[in-house]
Every structure is written in structure tokens, then in C-alpha cells.
Design a protein around this nucleic acid. Structure first.
Length: 491
RNA sequence: GGCCCCAUGGUCUAUCGGUUAGGACACCACCCUUUCAAGGUGGAGUGACGGGUUCGACUCCCGUUGGGGCUGCCA
């Protein structure tokens, strides 16, 4: 068996869609397994489904993996500019480009009588009570007869694997323990289509073998493929790798994850402002947990803690709320400069030019404690970069705190006078707070009563960062300038 | 239907025969408080069912039920 430092694992997505959360987690588990032991993480694109595979999808998958920080040692060139090229000694890493090698092995199996051209029709593969037959009636056709049939079919016949009978096909699954199938149940499965192209189970087996994959960790949906692959390995005279099958990720209702459960593509989470580290941390915890139940992990800690043997057997639900919570925690843990950097893609370009990056950084800092998603910044902080227009004011809020509020006039007016008296240098909480407190006392009102009208006048609505933070960051001129019209209007 | 896998609160999970079954998300209450969040404290809520094995089962075995996967000349 392979020793830990020679581990070679792979992630082999088929480019028929974007990177799915389940695939991302599988990739993560494999990446961790390889990296924690100095092994290699290999990426192979299984694009042998001519009908459904697309370049667009491949690019998205590569992009998603890169975003999550799951870099591969061998596989397609990660540089989008060199799309289609491979890096590594066992390439190409696009399955469709390995057809020649697949055919070589097909010939080997045919020559050894371990596979056969099968002229069976659908009816011939169905028994009297309508059930599908496992064994082909043509499994013992002589090579000559096969050639004759092949010629008669115009060279278009699928190739079936001649399944060994009466055997137990079993393996010690890294996560499930012993799993066993009866070979007769599996039967003579087709592994080369009549058009000569190899099918999934055969292509994976050939490629995993050629790429010297030592450990295959994949989704539970592959359990029933495993015995076929093991039989293929044996027929080919190869030693099967170690297999492990992680549980599926399901929706909160226990059903297979679908659009109905919200976003299933990792790209969608990126767009809504989920941090990749939060996504990875969240994914790590579906189907795996350390003994001490630690939940927040740095990448290094993941490497230290992760053990594929601790992967759970039961399917895990994708709980969006927990992801959101993690994202909030990760946002809060960002250093100031990093926070701004992460937020930039979600901010209009003008914001950075408005009063410079330093200002943008001060604004953004006010939201670090409040954000759940990075993409909330634009809708929340806009009034730091633009004066609210008539339409930006929430009508109901304006009525409640300003126009229908008898105290609004004096609150705005009195404080305006006090604030105006402050110089630019005195424009800080230390100087702004006393007048507010004094007014509260004089009017016998709570701070909220006094601050809300100001907040509404300044931001258009009743929600903002802390009052003094708002005043200070907005600046004296802006604050006074925005409130003045309201004083006139209320009088 | 057949084959295979699985089963601790609503959700993610810890427990590897002896615990008041622990933590996290969500939820509820309270606190903090200038709004919204965030934060703090506390609370409610769980071993699917039935048999065994054992001095003792969430834990081991069997069955039932329930859920899932596969059952393609898709991957």
C-alpha cells in the first residue's frame, strides 16, 4: 500500500455545468489529503461526454477551484490564457485527449477475451418478465464470430466487459469500511460505445491507473461504479487504488441539492460576497468534524486536523444560514486593508475616487461589524459617497422622524447651531457628544429621539453606523450641508 | 422492483459500553444600546422503532421503518 508521502489523489469533474458545492467539497477533501502529507493533488477534466461537455464549463470549474484556493499539482494549465494545455508528467489531463491510450487497453482486453463485441439488442438484454439481464447472450462468442457480427453491423458494435462469474467484489472503503458486491449482479457492462468511444468507468480506470492515482476519494454516488472499476483494474492486471466515498450534500429538506435550495454553484456564492475562506471552512464541516468539534479553521489548521477516516457516512444538509454566519465571522476577522481589498469588487469604481482610498477605508471599517455579505456594502454605505436625493429618502421614515415630528425642528436647528460652532479640528466625538447630551436633557428626550432625525436627514433612512462615526466620517461640511435644507423645510 | 449505502435536537456535529448526551447555526428571553447589526448571558429542543448481547447500551448484533445512491451506448 502507498505510504502517506506518496499519496496521489485527484479531482475529476465533468465539465457539464459549473463547479457545484458537492464537487467543491470533494476537491477540498482531496486537496487536504494530498497536501497534508506532501502528496499530489491532480485535476483531470472528464470531458468524454461529447454532447454535454463545454469549454465554458471547464473554465468556470478551473476558476472556481482557483477562487477556493485549491491549487493542483498536475492538470490543466491554471492560466486562462493557456487554456487546454496541461501541466504534469501524466498528461494530457483532459480525458477526451486520451482516447488513443484508452483504445490500446480496449484492444488488450479484447485480445485476452476479457471483453467482447456485443450485438445484443435491447430485447435480447431483457428477460421474460421485463427485467434487465446482467449477462449478454453473446458473452462467449468466438473472436471470429465477433468480427463477423461487427462487420455485419457496419463496424458499429458496443464492447462489453466479460464479467467474471460468482465472485465477490469488495473493498475496504476509507470512510465506510468493507463494501461488497456480487460480480453477477454487475454483469457484462458496456464500456466502449458502438462509436468506439470509451465510457466513464473504463476511462476513469485507465486514467487513474496511468496517472498513478493511489487514493480515490469521491462522492457516494460512485459507490456502485466502484466494483466495475475494480474488476476493470484486475482485468487490466493493475492494482486498484484505495477508495473512499464521502456522503452527498443534500438540501435542508434532505433531498438532493438543486436550484430549489438556492445557489448550488460556488460562483454564485462568490458573487453574493461570500469569502472563499468562509466557503471552504463551511464546506469542510459538511460530512467531516474533528474530535474536539473545533469549527473555525485556518488553512494550516485544516491540514493539521483533517483525516479522511473521520468523514461521516450520513448525508449532510447544506445549511445556508450557517454559511452566512461563518462569512460574518470571517469578514470581522479581516485586517482593515484586507477588508477594503475584499470589498473593492463590490463597490462602484467612483467610490474609490470620491475622496480617495483612505476615506473609502474609513467608511468600510464602519461596516465590518455589520456585514454578512460583501455585496451588502453598496446598498448600505452609498450615502458616504453621494448626497441622498429626494428619491433616496424613505417616505415613511421621513414622516415619522422629520415632517410629522414636532420636535424635529428644534432638534435639527439647535444642534445645527452647536455643531456649526465647532471647527474642522474639533469635529470628533469628544466635541460632538456634549451638545447632544445637553439637548437630550433640555428636551427630556432619549438619545434615540434626538439622533434619529439627524440620521434620517443625513442618510435617507433610519439605519446607519453609530451616530458619531457617521458624523465624523461624513465630515463637518457634508453633515451641515445635508441638514441645512431640512431645517429650512421644517420651519 | 433489484443491488448498495445511511440513521444523535429543525440543521452541522462530539461521544469510539458507564456523560445531567457536549458544541455550533437557527429559534426564544434577557443584557448592552443612538438605529440596524454585532457582542454577552440564559433557555427550549435530540439518540426512528422493535428485538437481542451485556451488570450496564446512543454506542455492538439482527430485524423493521424511513431516507439516499445506482440501476444509460452520461459522468
Amino acid at each position: 500500500m502507498a505510504t502517506p508521502d506518496t499519496i496521489r489523489v485527484r479531482f475529476a469533474p465533468s465539465p457539464t455545468g459549473y463547479l457545484h458545492t458537492g464537487g467543491a467539497r470533494t476537491a477540498l477533501f482531496n486537496w487536504l489529503w494530498a497536501k497534508q502529507s506532501g502528496g499530489q493533488f491532480i485535476l483531470r477534466i472528464e470531458d468524454t461526454d461529447e454532447l454535454r461537455s463545454t469549454e465554458e464549463s471547464t473554465r468556470k470549474i478551473l476558476d472556481g477551484l482557483r477562487w477556493l484556493g485549491l491549487d493542483w499539482d498536475e492538470g490543466p494549465d491554471a492560466d486562462p490564457a493557456r487554456f487546454g494545455e496541461s501541466i504534469g508528467d501524466c498528461g494530457p489531463y483532459f480525458q477526451s485527449k486520451r482516447a488513443e491510450r484508452h483504445l490500446e487497453l480496449v484492444k488488450q482486453l479484447l485480445a485476452e477475451g476479457q471483453a467482447f463485441y456485443c450485438p445484443a439488442t435491447a430485447e435480447e438484454m431483457t428477460d421474460a418478465d421485463g427485467k434487465k439481464k446482467n449477462l449478454s447472450p453473446y458473452r462467449d462468442l468466438s473472436p471470429e464470430e465477433q468480427q463477423a457480427r461487427l462487420a455485419a453491423a457496419g463496424g458499429q458494435l458496443p464492447i462489453r466487459f466479460k464479467c467474471p462469474l460468482g465472485k465477490e467484489v469488495a473493498w475496504d472503503d476509507v470512510v465506510r469500511g468493507r463494501v461488497s458486491f456480487k460480480s453477477d449482479e454487475i454483469g457484462d457492462f458496456i464500456f466502449v460505445k458502438s462509436n468506439g468511444l470509451p465510457l466513464y468507468n473504463f476511462a476513469v480506470t485507465c486514467d487513474d491507473a496511468d496517472m498513478r492515482i493511489t487514493h480515490v476519494l469521491r462522492g457516494e454516488d460512485h459507490i456502485s461504479n466502484t466494483p466495475k472499476q475494480i474488476m476493470l483494474y484486475r482485468a487490466l492486471g493493475l492494482t486498484p487504488p484505495l477508495f473512499g466515498h464521502a456522503p452527498l450534500i443534500v438540501g435542508m429538506d434532505g433531498a438532493r441539492l438543486s436550484k430549489r435550495h438556492g445557489a448550488t454553484q460556488v460562483g454564485a456564492y462568490r458573487e453574493m460576497g461570500i469569502l472563499p475562506e468562509a466557503m471552504v471552512n463551511f464546506l469542510l464541516l459538511i460530512g467531516w468534524a474533528p474530535k474536539d468539534n473545533k469549527e473555525l479553521f485556518t488553512r494550516q489548521e485544516m491540514l493539521d486536523y483533517f483525516n479522511p477516516a473521520d468523514i461521516n457516512k450520513a448525508a449532510g444538509a447544506f445549511n445556508p444560514e450557517k454559511l452566512h454566519h461563518f462569512n460574518g465571522l470571517y469578514i470581522r476577522s479581516l485586517a482593515p486593508a484586507e477588508l477594503l481589498a475584499r470589498l473593492k469588487p463590490f463597490m462602484p469604481a467612483e467610490w474609490l475616487e470620491f475622496r480617495g482610498e483612505e476615506y473609502a477605508g474609513r467608511v468600510v471599517a464602519l461596516y465590518q461589524e455589520k456585514l454578512t455579505f460583501l455585496n451588502e456594502i453598496e446598498g448600505n454605505a452609498w450615502y458616504f459617497f453621494r448626497d441622498p436625493q429626494e428619491t433616496d429618502y424613505n417616505e415613511a421614515t421621513v414622516a415619522k422622524f422629520l415632517t410629522s415630528n414636532d420636535e424635529a425642528g428644534p432638534i435639527l436647528g439647535d444642534l445645527f447651531a452647536e455643531f456649526s460652532a465647532l471647527s474642522e479640528d474639533e469635529w470628533d466625538e469628544q466635541h460632538l457628544a456634549p451638545p447632544v447630551d445637553a439637548l437630550c436633557e433640555r428636551l427630556g428626550l432619549g438619545k434615540g429621539k434626538v439622533m434619529q432625525p439627524w440620521r434620517v436627514a443625513l442618510t435617507g433612512d433610519k439605519i446607519s453606523p453609530g451616530f458619531f462615526d457617521l458624523l465624523v466620517v461624513l465630515g463637518r461640511e457634508t453633515v451641515l450641508g445635508r441638514v441645512k435644507p431640512w431645517i429650512n423645510r421644517l420651519n
